[in-house]
Each structure stands twice: as C-alpha cells, then as structure tokens.
C-alpha cells in the first residue's frame, strides 16, 4: 500500500471534520429527542455505517487505498462514528438504574448499525 504525506493529512483532516459533524448531530438529537437516551451516538453510527457500506463498494475497499478512499472511509466516517461514546453511555444507563435501556442501546446499535452498513453496501451494488 502506498502511504505518503497526503495520506496522513487526509486522515487527520477527515477525522477532524467527521468529529465535528458527530458533535453537531449529537447536539441536534439531544435538543430534538432529549438527553435520557444517547440518540445522537446511535444516529451517527447508523448514518456513518450506511455511508461507509456504499463508499466501500464505490471505492473498492479494501483493495484500494486512494487518498479519496482514505479521506472519506478512514478519516471522515471513521471520525464521525464512535464506539467509545457508545460504551460510556451504555454503562452510564446501567449505572443510573436503566439496565433495560442499556440493553436496548446495545441491541439497537449492533443490529441497526450492521444492517445499515449492509443496506449501504447492497444499494451501491455490493455482492453483485
């Protein structure tokens, strides 16, 4: 794989933009849907997984590592989606006595997140 300076710049810039977009969506979800459940993290992970499924087909992941593929897949969508907040928020729900909500968050994230990646992948023509 060809790794050069442009590659690293693309990842850092993409990751920064993805992270700020994640913050924006989280704040928006908290405003619209409330703060009792981590809707924002669920929404970014579903949206990001769907987008990455599509881009993986279009940009021939994992065979190609063009600067565009690295910018969008590793950078922007890698930074947009998150596991750390999911883990923290799931534990926090349980610690606050909402074990059922914690379990629901886990199930929704895994099922909808993976399904979204699959839907994006199929919509872009993956598996054909």
């Amino acid at each position: 794989m060809d790794v050069n300076a442009l590659w690293w710049v693309a990842i850092a810039a993409g990751g920064g933009m993805g992270g700020m977009a994640r913050l924006f969506v989280s704040e928006l979800c908290a405003t619209l849907l409330g703060k009792n459940f981590p809707w924002g993290t669920l929404v970014v992970n579903i949206l990001g997984s769907c987008a990455v499924g599509m881009l993986a087909v279009r940009l021939h992941w994992p065979l190609s590592n063009t600067p565009l593929a690295v910018l969008l897949i590793t950078g922007v969508l890698g930074g947009f989606t998150t596991v750390s907040s999911f883990s923290l928020q799931t534990l926090a729900l349980r610690d606050e006595g909402h074990a059922g909500w914690a379990l629901l968050n886990g199930v929704l994230t895994l099922v909808l997140g993976v399904a979204a990646a699959g839907i994006g992948w199929f919509m872009a023509g993956g598996g054909r």
């Binding site: 990751g15 920064g16 993805g18 992270g19 994640r22 913050l23 992970n45 990001g48 997984s49 987008a51 990455v52 499924g53 993986a56 992941w61 994992p62 897949i73 590793t74 969508l77 890698g78 930074g79 947009f80 989606t81 998150t82 596991v83 750390s84 907040s85 999911f86 923290l88 994230t109 997140g113 993976v114 979204a116 990646a117 699959g118 992948w121 993956g126 598996g127």
Partner: peptide
C-alpha cells in the same frame, strides 16, 4: 480528549463494514 480524541480514535463504521465483509 473524550469527545474528540476517543471519538475519532474509535470507529463503528469500520466495525460494521468488517462484519458485512465477513458475511458477504
């Protein structure tokens, strides 16, 4: 550190993509 670094360091999208790749 938390929202920025940890959020950017971890990735759910790549996890989802890898699962789809294994299934496909």
């Amino acid at each position: 550190v938390a929202v920025g670094f940890c959020g950017g360091f971890t990735t759910f999208s790549m996890f989802g993509l890898e699962v789809i790749y294994l299934l496909s």
